[in-house]
Amino acid sequence: MTDGLALAAHGLGKRYRATWALRDCSFELPEGRVAALVGTNGAGKTTLLTMIAGLLQPTEGEVRLPRGGRVAFVAQDKPLYRNFTPLDMLRVGAKLNRQWDQGRAIDWLTRFDVPPGRPCGKLSGGQQAQVAFAVAVGSRPSLLVLDEPLSDLDPLARRAVINELLTEVADTGMTMVMSTHVVAELSGVADHLLLLADGALLMSGDVDDLLAEHRVYIGPRSPEPPVPGRIVQASHAGGQSTFVLQGDAPVDEPWTVRPATLEEVVLARLSAGWTVAA
């Protein structure tokens, strides 16, 4: 596997009986990235993540990690042993991993005020999520895989968790892949985007490149955009038309142009549903 990659998928596919949950998924993820896996419900996000985590055997294709690469995975429902205390859960992590950083794991619990001696079943959903994160962080992975990590958290905790995770990425040089369907949470967080729809990878790429190549044109109602370029999305409301275009041609009055936000690009691509070579 090429140097500098944290993860590579080649022709990855998973079939459940007659249905393909994911098919022909190929991408590469450089080290140190924070990748967002975005897709509608049932797009195959969890299937892809559990295959990356080594918990599910692909029907076809393969997941490749660099030599010595280690994955930590936090499932969406943050499963824990209900009668174990958070300290017991950390001990599970310590027992089952070749590397373990107890200090980091304890720091995480302390940072989020998780009582270390109370059984996990008696903790709040948010605290249980923090225990799961602490185990994952303590195992010092080269690749941290999180399935909907923020779903159990309140808005304040979401921001705090994201910041802590980004700090871990910066401190340890690890790579992170997290799935979400809340695209608004991603701005300023993810620098790599994986877009899934209906079991197919629509795109994989650098977020900055993606934003640089998309523009939003707004002007008087018109069936065609004012400049040439691939139409990602067109919408018409009242006397106004809005086009999300791939391209950055300048435009004259009365049209205006501005850079697209990540949310606009993602939603446009998901609703358009066309496939691009990654």
Partner: peptide, 9 residues
């Protein structure tokens, strides 16, 4: 909990 147990090393 198999997700916890089997996603470790």
């Amino acid at each position: 909990t198999h997700l916890v147990l089997w996603s470790q090393d």
